[in-house]
Design a protein around this nucleic acid. Sequence first.
RNA 1: GGCGCAUUCGUCUAGGGGUUUAGGACACCUCCCUCUCAAGGAGGAGAUCACCGGUUCGAAUCCGGUAUGCGCUACCA
Length: 365
Amino acid sequence: MKRKQPPGYDRLCRELSAEERASKEANGIIPVVRFKIPLTGRTGFDDIIRGSVVFENSTLDDFVLLKSDGYPTYHLANVVDDHFMAISHVLRAEEWLSSVPRHVLLYRALGFEPPQFAHLPMLLGPDRSKLSKRHGAVAVTEYRDQGYLPEAMVNFLALLGWSLDDKTEILSREELVANFTLDRISQTAAIFNPEKLGWMDGVYIRRLEPADFVLRSLPFLERDLPAEVARPLDIDYVRRVLPLVQERARTLSEVAELTRFFFVTETMNDPALLIAKEMDRASTLKTLKVSLERLGSLPAFDEESLETVLRPLAEELALKTGQLFGTLRVAVTGRTAAPPLFQTMAVLGKTLCLNRIETALTKLS
RNA sequence: GGCGCAUUCGUCUAGGGGUUUAGGACACCUCCCUCUCAAGGAGGAGAUCACCGGUUCGAAUCCGGUAUGCGCUACCA
């Protein structure tokens, strides 16, 4: 190729006589069996997706049918196997298009009726080249391990190169099989867009029954939560924690990170975060102290009671709710972004919350 | 190099001669909701339909060429 020579077999042994063949074999040459392509004419077929495709036979080389180890190549095996399995339609990626003439020539030579062919558009990496290992995941199992739901994966993949209409994005597997038709497959290769996959996975996660979400997330929590967290996890606690993050996760593997502070003991890493906008150390310390008192005397620690105490408290301290709740959020979770405060505190429980607020108080002063 | 396939917003796509000021989705931006983050709602920006020529009263839609991209060009699949 580099020397601008047409690559491929040079047909050196195409017309060997019986004696020549015998002599070569006597010299220990182990032969391969090739297909003798007609030197002239053309071979074409009707692709379901691309229409008529025609090749000049002269551009085809005498490809190998049987390797020197006696095993068939894909070309031979595929044709023979498909014929005996009575395959009616061959659907495969576009990268196979150029080998179809070899296959139809083989079908004919064998006296078989060629099947119908449909060459699907390929999946490309972000650099527009054939999806491969260097683009990240190629095997669907890798996506499963990364926390993508199979049903989201199926939906997403189906929409790469196929569409139902001009609007529908979310289709169940059942809707897919009921509506899928070859004639709506597009002819252009599609670049795999991980952003959209993430969005779609989030849609599917939100649609999960809460109990199912727990079931599906559990293995990821067991796998990804820090080692210091005791295993097996307390399933009842997990069941109360997870609903708070179901609509916030795009993949199941994000669940561990989103819920981490519910499980680990040490959460206050950056006390500076405690100081809310337009507040200082002194006012924050005061806020934490008063909150500690009020919360400590709270008989019930459920969402409603918490709200009933904390909302008026903001006003009493002349703070915006955002400032009070923000400070408490950091105190109790260690982070500025978390599920709604009252629900979070209710799940964490009174003891843990009070402890964490005390810790925050100590770390800040 | 040869052969083949393809070419509509950044990406996935609808649309297949007049209904198109080219529709939807992801991402992006703004606003609303709101204790943060999400989710949700309402808007916005984003495509001279690769280019050139032809057919036609009329072309994103049909035809040809060019360009570009991709694939194949193995005793791989």
